[in-house]
């Protein structure tokens, strides 16, 4: 379980997170939703220690992540993968090399051939195997994103944090990513925390949804709770309406 307890974060004078508290239960697919700039990326980066809270605690099972140093965080990061909002592939390496890198560095495979076979299998899961030998600069943003997902899955993480995994993908590939996330948690027991404002994904695969608004948790609940909410902010967001109480 991932727990945020009273987490606050400011950049300069701007308060991005204000006493955010919620849990991410094991095995489920949880979504964090909110407008652009609401602090969703900042929030999930707290889990793997890329951002430190100004106040509050973040727990991963029985580890208080927010207290760990960079070295201890390495073991957290093997268990909890992060897929960045923008594909962060290494420019100087092919797709296959990108995916093989964590396998190699953490000894997941005895021989080079074994590692390459595993890397290919991971690429196949995101339908990118035919592009194994391409370099990132030769691929579109959506393809790079899928390779980045394959790379994040390389170490068989228990938790996966996805930052806007379907943004920039065409609808067909977006649904494929949704299905991949579903398969991971239904069959692999992986716990997923997904940042998104893709309404189709949200209402398609979410078990639980947390909505952030102005740095605070606005509503936590199931997709049905969100559909039926009479909070005008929530209603405006889930219906994708231009007019309403949300700031531009």
């Amino acid at each position: 379980m991932i727990s945020f307890r009273e987490v606050s974060k400011r950049f300069g004078t701007r308060t991005v997170l204000d006493r955010v508290t919620f849990d991410v239960p094991r095995g489920a697919i949880s979504f964090v939703i909110g407008a652009s700039g609401a602090g969703k990326s900042v929030l999930i980066k707290h889990v793997t220690g890329f951002v430190r809270p100004d106040a509050g605690e973040i727990w991963l099972d029985d580890l208080e992540v927010s207290r760990l140093g960079e070295r201890e965080l390495a073991s957290v990061r093997k268990r909890c993968a992060l897929v960045f909002q923008h594909a962060t592939l290494f420019d100087s390496q092919s797709c296959l090399e990108n995916v093989a890198l964590p396998l190699e560095k953490h000894g997941r495979g005895r021989t080079g051939a074994e590692i390459r076979a595993r890397a290919r299998a991971l690429l196949a899961r995101v339908h990118m195997e035919p592009f194994a030998d391409r370099y990132p600069s030769e691929l579109g943003e959506g393809m790079k994103k899928r390779v980045a997902i394959a790379r994040a899955l390389a170490l068989d993480p228990e938790y996966v944090l996805f930052d806007e995994p379907t943004t920039g993908l065409d609808p067909v590939n977006a649904r494929r990513v949704d299905r991949l996330i579903q398969t991971l948690s239904r069959e692999g027991g992986v716990t997923s925390l997904v940042v998104s404002h893709d309404l189709t994904s949200i209402f398609g695969i979410a078990d639980r949804i947390v909505m952030l608004y102005k740095g605070r948790v606005r509503l936590i609940g199931t997709p049905d709770d969100f559909r039926q909410s009479d909070d005008p902010v929530v209603r405006q967001f889930v219906r994708g309406e231009a007019e309403g109480p949300m700031d531009a």
Partner: peptide
């Protein structure tokens, strides 16, 4: 990283 020739 494969052992495919990265360099000439």
């Amino acid at each position: 990283m494969s052992d495919a020739p990265v360099v000439e």
